[in-house]
Design a binder for these strands. Sequence first.
DNA 1: GATGAATGAGGTTTCATTCAT
DNA 2: TATGAATGAAACCTCATTCAT
Lengths: 198, 198, 198, 198
Amino acid sequence: MVKYKKSDEKRKQILSAAFRSLSEHGYDSVTLQTIADYAEVSKGVVHYYFASKEAVLVELLEWLTGKISARERAAVAVQHTAEGKLAAYIDSAFAGPAQNRSFYRVYLDFLSRASRSPVYREINQRFYDSCAGISTEVLLLGQQEGVFNKELTPGRAAPVIRAIIDGCLIQWLMAGRDELHADFKDSCYAAVMKVLSV
Amino acid sequence: MVKYKKSDEKRKQILSAAFRSLSEHGYDSVTLQTIADYAEVSKGVVHYYFASKEAVLVELLEWLTGKISARERAAVAVQHTAEGKLAAYIDSAFAGPAQNRSFYRVYLDFLSRASRSPVYREINQRFYDSCAGISTEVLLLGQQEGVFNKELTPGRAAPVIRAIIDGCLIQWLMAGRDELHADFKDSCYAAVMKVLSV
Amino acid sequence: MVKYKKSDEKRKQILSAAFRSLSEHGYDSVTLQTIADYAEVSKGVVHYYFASKEAVLVELLEWLTGKISARERAAVAVQHTAEGKLAAYIDSAFAGPAQNRSFYRVYLDFLSRASRSPVYREINQRFYDSCAGISTEVLLLGQQEGVFNKELTPGRAAPVIRAIIDGCLIQWLMAGRDELHADFKDSCYAAVMKVLSV
Amino acid sequence: MVKYKKSDEKRKQILSAAFRSLSEHGYDSVTLQTIADYAEVSKGVVHYYFASKEAVLVELLEWLTGKISARERAAVAVQHTAEGKLAAYIDSAFAGPAQNRSFYRVYLDFLSRASRSPVYREINQRFYDSCAGISTEVLLLGQQEGVFNKELTPGRAAPVIRAIIDGCLIQWLMAGRDELHADFKDSCYAAVMKVLSV
DNA sequence: GATGAATGAGGTTTCATTCAT
DNA sequence: TATGAATGAAACCTCATTCAT
């Protein structure tokens, strides 16, 4: 028990180090040595816990998207109106300049890989499925409430909602200006509302 | 003059090879040897025309975004209504499964780099500026025509429009299903229309 | 005493594991982890009983050659004619396809090491001395019986006898065909007989 | 032409370096760096000419056995009696202390690998086939001359002849005494003669 | 006694870059 | 201009060995 916990913590420690390392230096510059340095362990430890560098990255994507999914779902769950849930979803996605920057820097790399590798694509798909679940919940509730367009189907609307969120955060990231974060969040919320509204 | 032209062609040949190579194998697997092989030249030639591998990539991003900007502007220019221009813009952006896939595979890599490196960010910014120019043209014309919301400002609307386009194409790419390309284009067009409409 | 016995058994267990591991996977692929796995003990145990990997190998060669020497001497001892002893010796050396294969795979590695390292060479020399003892016994008895050439001296004949045995078993091993084992044994016996006969 | 020759020479240079390196330090201690050092080239060059370390070793075995086969065949070809050819064969095999030591040190390693890997086994088999060709030639001629036993078949006799040669050279190598080289050669010749004689 | 987490030296391999031809 | 042989830094990975528990 204790041992398992300990090793599980070390895995998290390494994943976290890999995340910071990736986010700050980019994929090219990330070596196992860098990750080990960030995790303050020796190089061998990374290989002791992960079969290969690739395995670290795969697990990192799972871990990251899992954490974000959980956070978004939790935020949505405590709201009880369609608009409240939507705002909570987008607030949760726009977690803050530092968080969004570090995540999207890494996520763009993963999307690039996912476009070629089934392993990454499947993990991303689980993330998308979670997002689609939230969008569906919001849409159906809004339609019940009469605030959202009844002609919309979850299958069509959900990808567009995530497209707007990711698209806006990429635009914000490329602008390179933290102070615009709130503006982009507002624009994103407004756009999604318009798309869903009657 | 002749020499310059010749060398210019060879540069294009190498850039095109780099693009195909990057798109098919991903950044990790692309070496100067791969690029040279695709370009059917020797490895030394790549270094003769480009100072470094990095220089190839930088110029590739410029070349790619330049070509797309030009194509989009040309498509929009021949239309004379706001909706016609918007449809032309989106049609041009959704050039086709093969083209979108190869481009976005590479572009996601570049966005990731752009989030860290000013060199790439500036090139991407020029691309965004071009996109914003188109959006502005479309929006102002639509406002004149009375079909678009007069409260929208180009500065706020343009990033959202590009966000929706890129966001939708990323969603399509991750879905991994070519046959959904038309659906995503339609969804994209519908979403942009809703965002701009009165 | 009890402790010593117990630890002695564990040593044997590890040596046996090292032998199987070496024989099956070859020297390159044998790690202390592999040996530990075969011995069904933890990696630390191997180091607890042996100072180093090298120490395992050295002791393995001693153990192996010791066992074979003992077996050969025992087989020869129960025979009472020169030809009977010789046949018993060769029968014992050609113990069977599985045994010969696993032993010679490992032994060839050791011979290679012995050609460079005095430690291994000395162990092998003890094995050769044992073989020479058997050959001498056989030769002298055969000369007494009048069936072997009286001009032969043990010093000259013994290495040749072992050369033929090892040489034939190597030829058999390289042929890779178990069903030829009996043929090679016969050829070996015939050759040794011719060499020794009047 | 020139280029090909040049590169072919460099390959030989590397193979020769690998041989000396292997012979002197043993398989474990041989690294690509060692080989590069012996060949007086940079480490990268080895990989430029050979796909992997394994490829160097495979080609080394081919090269070594090919050279020895050629030498033995050439030596036998200039003799015209069975005994002359046999003596030439064995003289050629017992090339000298330095040569035999360096070759058998390496060859024992290769035999060990050949006992597990088909690649090495096939190369060794070609060597054995060449040896068998010589033995067959010698045996048939000797049978014609009436000096060798007419009941012997090449298929049975050839492996035994090579077994005696290899076995004797291994015995000599393990003895570690150069001055015994001639004695072992004599013993070997005598043993083969006895085996073949009427 | 026994374990296995941790270390880090050192191995093979890749590849951007240089440079003689 | 064009080539590709050569370089060597640096990557990933393995594994003997140590040591706290």
